[in-house]
Amino acid sequence: MRIAIIDGQGGGIGKHITEKLRKHLPEDTEIIALGTNSLATAAMLKAGANDGATGENAIAFMADQVDIIVGSVAVLAANSMLGELTPRMAEAIANSKAKKILLPINRAGIEIIGVVNEPLPHQIEKLITVLIKLRKGDSYV
């Protein structure tokens, strides 16, 4: 299983997700850190990602090279993350055949109705549960 974690700005969300994935998923799970900037990529690499790349071309290229894309819902919104996530990145992520498991963090001006507003650590725990089920071949719905 190849999982891409996409994050920007300081990489705090991606770092937290990477740490939890490393703790709860088998070692053969390949985690690829994709940062909109080098600070975000470095934070995820330091947290245990196997490999990392930075910028528009890296994200656009890698979107179709992984099984699962993880991040906040902002990765689907052009110009989110204070403009760091480009329209090309958003399009590549949205069009990727990879399964997308996204946290409903309202930092892109997107409000998802019907979603309980929970603290980030609770959202990441649910994300980990879904990925563990997917790893086992179970449905997460």
Rank of each mutant, 00 (worst) to 15 (best):
V130Q: 10
T41L: 04
A77H: 14
H16V: 06
I113Q: 09
A98R: 00
N50C: 01
E91R: 14
A90H: 06
I5L: 10
L25G: 08
E56F: 05
A77V: 14
I112P: 01
G12F: 06
A90Q: 04
D67K: 05
T18C: 15
M44A: 08
R2G: 00
K99Q: 10
S139Q: 11
G35I: 02
T41W: 05
E30N: 02
R107W: 15
R135T: 08
G48K: 13
V66T: 00
A77P: 00
P121M: 07
A60H: 00
N37D: 12
L45T: 01
G71T: 07
I59M: 02
T86W: 06
F61H: 13
E27T: 09
A53E: 12
G11H: 02
N37T: 03
S72E: 04
K15S: 11
P121C: 04
L25C: 07
I59Y: 14
L85I: 02
I3K: 09
I32Q: 01
H24Y: 15
R2N: 03
N50T: 15
A60D: 06
N50I: 08
A98I: 00
E91Q: 14
P104Y: 04
K126W: 05
M62C: 10
H16G: 14
A60R: 03
S96A: 14
S38E: 15
A77W: 08
I93L: 06
A58P: 09
A94H: 02
L103T: 13
I13S: 02
M62P: 01
I105V: 15
A63Q: 06
K133G: 14
E84A: 04
I13H: 09
I112M: 11
A43N: 04
I6V: 15
N106S: 11
L103W: 11
I13G: 02
I59L: 08
E91G: 12
L134R: 09
F61R: 07
E19W: 01
A78P: 15
L131V: 03
L39K: 09
G55V: 01
N79S: 13
A42R: 06
V115S: 12
A63F: 01
M1W: 05
A94S: 15
P26K: 10
I68M: 05
P121R: 00
A47V: 00
G55Q: 07
L21A: 05
L134Y: 11
M81P: 11
L82W: 12
L21F: 03
D7S: 13
T36V: 12
G11D: 07
G114H: 05
E30W: 05
N106E: 12
